[in-house]
Design a protein around this nucleic acid. Structure first.
Lengths: 232, 232, 232, 232
DNA sequence: GATGAATGAGAATTCATTCAT
DNA sequence: AATGAATGAATTCTCATTCAT
């Protein structure tokens, strides 16, 4: 995160000219160009010249804002991750109907992760993971890992309420996620599918996945409640 | 695909010297060198010089056998795929104890797919999938897809025998696979895990995965039989 | 050379603010920064950014005071030369004991010219002499050449006093200087020696050099006087 | 030095195609181009592109023959040194007339070292000595230093023959060399002189230098012999 | 048919200089 | 008048591909 002292802030306001490498508009402009090029070509094949052209800034400027190609890429991924997983977990905050919540969340997750844009970003990270393993690790940690934690927290709540009976919540959380992506994720990153799955496909997968999950982990109590609800 | 005309075959027989780009031994030698380099460095970072050195053939020779770097990589992946998934599905041919078979197969699958070597190969394919989408598609098609078909066939058998009750076998097959890889695959390709999972980890995941799967899809008949077997 | 018009002088008086590129304090500040950087890194390796940082002024300001990097370097060398050879020739103003004076002067000269700082400056000038020949010429002219003139004047005095007998005083002056630097100068600029010679080394070289010089040029009169002095 | 096994030599003869980076003609061609550019512009200002153009080879080829710019420069200087000091010391092998030999050698030395070409090479080495100090050291060691040793050996002979009386032969050798270059060397490397000294100038300097040297170090025996010779 | 020396476009990065603020 | 963010040409070096031997 860019640090700005109160003084320089004042200066900014007065003069309207940000310090070197500090103009957030320019930074965003560079990252936007970088996004297009990196996502389009992958890390290695993307040239700083391409990014220069795409971002509409000079080469020197990029190097004022980012130490080197790698760092620029990292910054982009950092941003991308934030964008991708934003608003994804809000669904889990409202605890209404367990099955409905799981389906709703699962569909959001599945749609997000298999969207063309996100798949391409993930491909780029995976492709670069050989040369910059920490990058991939960081991406996973602050993205999927964080999501996993949220799911765990949610499942724990359900267990406490007596709706689910789970021995290994950690593993169950992974199982839930995978069930929501069943068959989709790998097809997408390997570009076997060249288009993102449709809403209908996702619904089919997620509904079935939640079914499986609940058959495995739901308590009698939950089933009874659900039955009562439906007959009402 | 290597094309061999009748003429060149004749030539082979007469002179004992294969036509240009036709010697399968040399071809294998090149691919073997390429494997080491590509797997080790990834597509872009691998240089044709490295491959030349590793394969022990001259640069010109490589270009006789393969149009360019990309094609060489494709050929390698084609081979690699075959090697990876070979012997993986034999377990499914013997139908003894359903649960045991599923666990055994699941563990083989999970261990294979998350092994360091295979993960790296997959990373390379994924990384290249943007530039050469058909490559990733073909990899998926002849690898995971074929496996998927085998699993479907197996599940169908189980359904016929009244052991499982599945509406959508295609989807169930995906679910089974994903459950066996729950949490492992993504951690590996993003290099969040830098080492392959241990046998114990895999066993834990697969056992639990099969549990979930059977709770969702097993018939009364299967459960009764299993109970009988255990009390015996 | 800095030009100051009557107008800007007036301006100076009126506003207390020097005209662009006219403030001698700032000029000195820039040159001081440039000295550190140029001497430390050499002409090419020194970056204007380094100088900016070292001098504590902005890049724009430097370009107000100096047309470009080359001119700044020239100005620095101009100054440096003055500093180096200052106070070096005072010894020659007192004419006491000829031998002692020659040794004393020779040692000062030798120590100065082979000091780490001066050697580096000379290296930089020599290195730049190809690209900016006048620079080297000017450096020589106002440095070594001026020293040479002082030595000539001194030797002429000694000749007039009947202490030396020299046909070609110009040449003899060169010979004297070279004898004082015998073996040292070239070793230093080629960085065969990485450290400046010690006082003892210099003393050895200069004493011997003066010996040789006097054996070649001293008159009977001088030798007699010296003998008398020693026996006294 | 390039190492060539007997085998590859045979290969060379048979096929007429040198191994990579082994063709002496191409190597010479590159060095020749490098010489022109380096000597003309100095180390830093010379670009590999310039050398490419001047040498008439491709950039890649240069990098096959030389690791990098620095190494190419070193190789050039190595060559240059060899060329410069070749045949310089032969004069000292014949011991005829001491004064004549010294003058003859001194003139050769002086002419060589102050020749335009050699001065420029020395300037380049000196200029680069800051960045690559070992280079300057090596140049000095294998050039001037070696010459110094030859002079010492010669002086020692003269001492043994009773022609010279020298306490510190090492120092005397330096003094002799410097006397032969008196006033010339520094004027040349600082480009105060833009042209090499004329033969007449050199003769004047060296003759006088030898005079001074002999006045300081010649024995009575030598002087007597010389007198006898002249009156003959 | 095989070789590997040569090619040269293109890579990332630097830095003297400019000019809007 | 002073600033320093932005520029982009120029730098060194790499490497897929070609083609004479």
């Amino acid at each position: 995160m860019v640090e700005t002292t109160a003084d320089s802030d004042l200066l900014d306001l007065r003069k309207g000219r940000p310090a070197a490498g500090q103009d957030p508009v320019k930074r965003a402009q560079i990252i936007e160009g970088a996004r297009r090029v990196f996502i389009d070509k992958g890390f290695e094949a993307a040239s700083m010249n391409d990014i220069t052209r795409e971002a509409g800034v000079s080469k020197g400027t990029i190097y004022v804002y980012f130490e080197n190609k790698e760092e620029l890429f990292e910054a982009l991924i950092e941003e991308e991750r934030g964008t991708i997983f934003k608003n994804l977990y809000e669904v889990l905050d409202h605890f209404d109907d367990l099955r409905k919540t799981l389906v709703k969340f699962g569909m959001g997750l599945s749609a997000k992760i298999t969207s063309a844009k996100v798949i391409q970003a993930q491909r780029t990270v995976v492709g670069a993971a050989d040369r910059i393993p920490e990058l991939g690790a960081r991406f996973y940690e602050r993205g999927p890992k964080r999501g996993h934690d949220k799911v765990m927290a949610f499942l724990n709540q359900a267990v406490e309420r007596g709706l689910l009976k789970i021995d290994d919540v950690d593993l169950a959380a992974y199982q839930f996620t995978e069930l929501c992506l069943a068959g989709l994720f790998r097809q997408c990153i390997f570009s076997y599918r060249t288009k993102a799955p449709t809403q209908a496909e996702i619904e089919r997968v997620v509904t079935s996945g939640v079914d499986v999950f609940l058959k495995a982990y739901a308590t009698e109590k939950f089933l009874a409640e659900e039955k009562a609800l439906q007959s009402a």
